[in-house]
C-alpha cells in the first residue's frame, strides 16, 4: 500500500517534470530567428534635367523573421531629411500629406535566405515580395536584393527599387512636373541585429 502510494507519487513527479519541460519546448522548437533594426537607412532620388531631389531617412524600423521569411518596414515620412528645408516642408505638406499618412510601410516575404542560412556568414541573393504602402495607397512590389550574414547575429540588407508617385495617389501639379521624376529610385540599406 505504502509502496504503491510512493510509486504513484514518483510517477506524478515525473509527469509534472515532463509537462514543465514541454511548456518550454514550443518556444525552443520554434525559436524564431528574428532580426530587427530601428535605424535603417532609406534614400530616395528623383533625377530630372531641371533638378535632382533626394532625401535620407536614418530612422527606418524593420523586423525580419528568417524562420517564416516575413519582413516588415516602417518609415516616418517626417523623418526624411532634404537639403532644402522648404523642399522638406512641401514634401510633407503637399505631396506625402504626412499629417494624414505619417508612415510609409512595407510588409512582405523574403525568399533566398532560410533560418539555417541566417546562421552561416555569407552573402545571399534574395527576392522580396510584398505590399508597399505610401500616402495611404498600397501597391505590390517585387524586388531583388542582398542579405549578408555576419558574425554575431548581424544581417546587412540592401535593395533598390523604384516607385511612381502616381501609383500611390500623389498628385504632381503641372508647374513642377519637369522637376520631379516619373519614377523615384529608392535604396534601402540596413543592418539588422538579432532580437
Amino acid at each position: 500500500m505504502n509502496e504503491e502510494k510512493k510509486n504513484k507519487r514518483t510517477n506524478m513527479t515525473k509527469l509534472k517534470n515532463i509537462a514543465l519541460a514541454l511548456a518550454f519546448v514550443p518556444s525552443a522548437l520554434i525559436a524564431q530567428e528574428r532580426f530587427a533594426t530601428r535605424n535603417g537607412h532609406i534614400h530616395f532620388f528623383s533625377g530630372t534635367a531641371v533638378e535632382n531631389i533626394e532625401a535620407d531617412n536614418n530612422k527606418v524600423t524593420s523586423v525580419f523573421d528568417a524562420t517564416s521569411g516575413a519582413i516588415e518596414f516602417a518609415a516616418l515620412v517626417k523623418a526624411f531629411e532634404f537639403e532644402k528645408a522648404l523642399m522638406q516642408e512641401h514634401f510633407n505638406e503637399n505631396y506625402m500629406e504626412s499629417n494624414t499618412f505619417p508612415k510609409a510601410t512595407f510588409k512582405g516575404k523574403v525568399s533566398g535566405l532560410s533560418a539555417e542560412q541566417a546562421k552561416i556568414p555569407g552573402t545571399y541573393a534574395v527576392e522580396v515580395t510584398g505590399d508597399l504602402t505610401i500616402h495611404g495607397v498600397s501597391k505590390p512590389v517585387t524586388t531583388k536584393g542582398t542579405m549578408t550574414v555576419e558574425a554575431g547575429g548581424v544581417i546587412k540588407a540592401k535593395s533598390e527599387f523604384s516607385v511612381k508617385p502616381e501609383d500611390h495617389g500623389i498628385e504632381i501639379p503641372g508647374v513642377v512636373r519637369k522637376n520631379i521624376a516619373e519614377t523615384i529610385k529608392i535604396s534601402v540599406d540596413l543592418a539588422y541585429a538579432k532580437m
Binding site: 518556444s27 524564431q32 523586423v63
Partner: peptide, 21 residues
Amino acid sequence: ALLATAFLALPTFGQDNLLDL
C-alpha cells in the same frame, strides 16, 4: 503547465505585425 504551453506557443504563431515586437 499544459495550458501555459498552449499560451506560450500562441504568440509565436499569432504574430500579425512583426513591427509590434
